[in-house]
């Protein structure tokens, strides 16, 4: 692999120096493009009190292409599927090289606070969310308690 681009080292440096509240991201020692990420569930959301682990990888072409992000902790959310893949516009068509790891993680945190069952990735969850929101939210809470406790 080529030398680490300055952009990535700058972003990493800033993530460590001025961390975003509720979010941590640390690169692996042996692969500086691979990050261990944790995101705290936003307050007054069904994910409150949970700490979710994610993995983030910066492809060779970053920042011309978006980072690859995936949830490692099991989560009940209409826009996140069983494999932890995330349906989020800024990770796909709306990516711009001006966005950063920091902004992407903030967007994911926001997605936890505002599930969008009308643009689902996990169809069964989204359907449940639309039909019986109360139960769906309860399930999300239960899963948070069960899988996302630090």
């Amino acid at each position: 692999m080529n030398a680490l681009p300055k952009r990535i080292s700058k972003e990493t440096e800033r993530l460590v120096k001025e961390p975003v509240p509720g979010i941590s991201a640390a690169p692996h020692d042996d692969n500086l493009r691979y990050f261990d990420v944790t995101i705290d569930g936003p307050t007054s959301s069904p994910y409150e009190g949970g700490t979710f682990k994610l993995e983030l990888f910066l492809p060779e072409d970053y920042p011309m292409v978006p980072p690859k992000v995936r949830f490692l902790t099991k989560i009940y959310h209409p826009n996140i599927d069983r494999l932890g893949r995330i349906c989020l516009d800024v990770l796909k068509s709306n990516w711009s090289p001006a966005l950063q790891i920091r902004t992407i993680l903030l967007s994911i945190q926001a997605l936890l606070g505002a599930p969008n069952p009308d643009d689902p990735l996990a169809n069964d969850v989204a359907q449940k969310w639309k039909e019986d929101e109360k139960t769906a939210i309860q399930t999300a809470r239960d899963w948070t308690k069960e899988y996302a406790k630090a």
Binding site: P5, K6, R7, K10, P63, P97, A98
Partner: peptide
């Protein structure tokens, strides 16, 4: 004084 905001070089 220029720094590219994409590659930070």
């Amino acid at each position: 004084d220029f720094m590219c905001f994409l590659c930070c070089d």
